[in-house]
């Protein structure tokens, strides 16, 4: 494999006073990849990004960009650029001047800089707005300027720190598509930090799930969703029914119910969309339990059911709207899932 565009080896960051930082992160981001770091707030993902950008100094570990060590190299001499969470557009500069900020510092010729600015604004779809000030732009346009400004330096890796956090849902979806498009068009490696699992799943080529300063799992979105290897990865990415118990003979003995499972492990994770629910289930459900329907939540395209088993365990099922006949809350129902629906986890 080629030299990765960005590589972290055993990076740690401890803050004085014991504030949460990064405990140990090793990571490879390949050339041209859209890589996401996903995790809850405070898990160390933004710190990891700032360490790559050179805005924070790691306590230990090594940062390499295109195989070159970044030790003691300050932010302004690194081939990385950052799209800030709060954008940090210069309010006193126009759109064009914001984008030209980096190229000018690199002492490009005037015509070169102008060409870069034009190209970048074209790329993000803002041609024609060169003379505006940031405050004269909409939220979505400001995002695009921030991206164009960071790309204008032609970084080896573009770092993005939850740049869409301040946008409302619909605009965010729109910008997600635009970002993916820009990334493919420019062929730049993107390292994207987010706490939004949907964002990470839809945009990434590969992603890492982070928790408490550690990487839990790295992989492509489908693998991470379908085959999580830790309890945290399973519960943080999407919903899941998590059963804990002792494994014996392909059965997980769990709080009074016996769940048939595909292999050994302490936990069984079963996605709600793999769980069926009906007044009377047909054949083919090795895991089949009777319980009381406790809650029905209409979610548009799907319906969520919560079934309380006599043992006290709650099972959540999610079914497409038309797939299930109407069930009344409080009635007795059957719920079940195939053996291979469960993913086995040790921790």
């Amino acid at each position: 494999m080629d030299t990765p565009d960005a590589e972290l080896r055993g990076v740690r960051k401890q803050y004085p006073g014991g504030a949460r930082g990064v405990r140990d992160v090793s990571l490879r981001v390949e050339r041209g990849e859209f890589f996401s770091l996903l995790g809850p707030s405070g898990c160390g993902k933004s710190t990891t990004l700032r360490i790559l950008a050179g805005l924070e100094e790691p306590t230990a570990g090594e940062v390499l960009i295109r195989g070159e060590s970044m030790a003691r190299r300050p932010a302004h001499r690194r081939p990385t650029n950052l799209v800030f969470q709060r954008l940090a557009l210069f309010p006193h500069l126009t759109v064009a001047e914001n984008v030209a900020f980096g190229p000018r510092l690199r002492r490009g010729s005037r015509s070169e800089t102008a060409a870069t600015v034009a190209e970048m604004l074209e790329l993000v779809g803002l041609s024609g707005l060169e003379k505006r000030y940031p405050a004269q732009l909409s939220g979505g346009q400001q995002q695009r300027v921030a991206i164009a400004r960071a790309l204008a330096n032609r970084p080896a890796v573009l770092l993005l720190d939850e740049p869409l956090g301040s946008l409302d849902l619909k605009l965010r979806v729109q910008m997600q598509r635009a970002l993916k498009h820009i990334q493919q068009e420019s062929g730049t490696t993107f390292l994207y930090v987010t706490h939004d699992q949907v964002e990470a799943l839809t945009m990434s080529d590969r992603m890492a799930v982070m928790n408490e300063g550690l990487i839990e799992q790295v992989g492509d979105p489908a693998t991470l969703y379908r085959a999580p290897t830790t309890r945290f990865a399973a519960t943080f990415l999407g919903d899941t029914n998590l059963f804990e118990g002792t494994h014996r003979d392909q059965v997980l003995d769990c709080a009074g119910i016996a769940v048939r499972v595909p292999g050994p492990g302490r936990f069984a994770s079963v996605r709600p969309e793999r769980v069926s629910v009906a007044a009377q289930l047909g054949d083919g459900y090795p895991n089949r339990f009777t319980g009381r329907l406790e809650e029905v939540v209409f979610q548009g395209a799907s319906i969520r059911y919560q079934v309380r088993l006599p043992s006290g365990v709650a099972v959540t099922a999610e079914r497409r709207d038309e797939a299930t006949p109407a069930l009344a809350v409080g009635t007795e129902v059957e719920t079940g899932w195939p053996v291979d629906a469960a993913v086995m986890l040790d921790h």
């Binding site: 805005l55 300050p74 001499r77 950052l82 940090a88 210069f90």
Partner: peptide, 22 residues
């Protein structure tokens, strides 16, 4: 906003220039 200063440094300005420009 001190992230403007960080942004200038990220875009290639040294500490003194970042202060002056941002």
């Amino acid at each position: 906003d001190d992230t403007l200063d960080a942004a200038a440094r990220d875009l290639g300005a040294g500490p003194v220039r970042a202060f002056r420009l941002a």
